[in-house]
Amino acid sequence: MSVQSSSQRRVARLAWAVSPRLWSPARLADAVALGIWAGLFWYLLPAERSALYLSSRTSWVVPLGAVLLTLGAIGRLAGARSPAPEPLSRRHALGIGVIIVPVIAVLALPPSALGSYAAARRSSFVGSGYIASPDDVASGELSLADIAGALQSQKGAQALARRAGSRVSLVGFVTKESGMPADEFVLTRFLVSCCVADALSVQVRVVGAPPGNLKTDQWVRVEGALYPLENEALVDAAEVVHVDRPVRPYLNP
């Protein structure tokens, strides 16, 4: 195009402008596929949906994606009528189909969150990045991330040791290790910093739980007294109640 003179280009543009326009199947297919992806991002806009896939720190990509994809679809549709419409080749159709597969997977399946299967296979969380100082641990309510984070540094562990016997209320799901007695389980929650692919597990051991009815993957709230050991934390349960999966099933830094 750059070798053409400007007058040649003007003629071409004029010819283009006056020739009859037809819908181009290839461009229509592009616009439909962009629209479908845009639809997925609009669907994910409420926090209770995006929280199953993304951290609260990265959830801004959802509105960004929704707007960009919508603009892309509208733009492609607006230019879809052309004097030289491109046919939709089989390869092009197949390529677009591949891209829509994830949308179908998200929409067709019931919403779910990582559970015990992942807990057995993923690394566990090391919290130094999130715990600014042992002061956070020294007073106030202790969260699952506080406890796991504090155990990673000597100062944190000491600060936590001073809280021995404090009452805690923690929410997570049940995982079991082989050989655990009936009144013990591991309370697990995942910490997600960007998307679910980087999930790290956060765990405390619960003892003295009322036996029975504690199936793996059941979400529970455990209330009881916290006893930090050398490199793990133990909760002597006073009460274990079933709860629904939280709206945000993952902890976010």
Partner: peptide
């Protein structure tokens, strides 16, 4: 379930950046 969650979340995060 684990596979589908990781698969979808990788794509949901990457698609806006690709765009």
């Amino acid at each position: 379930q684990n596979f589908l969650l990781v698969f979808s979340s990788l794509l949901i995060e990457a698609v806006p950046f690709i765009l």
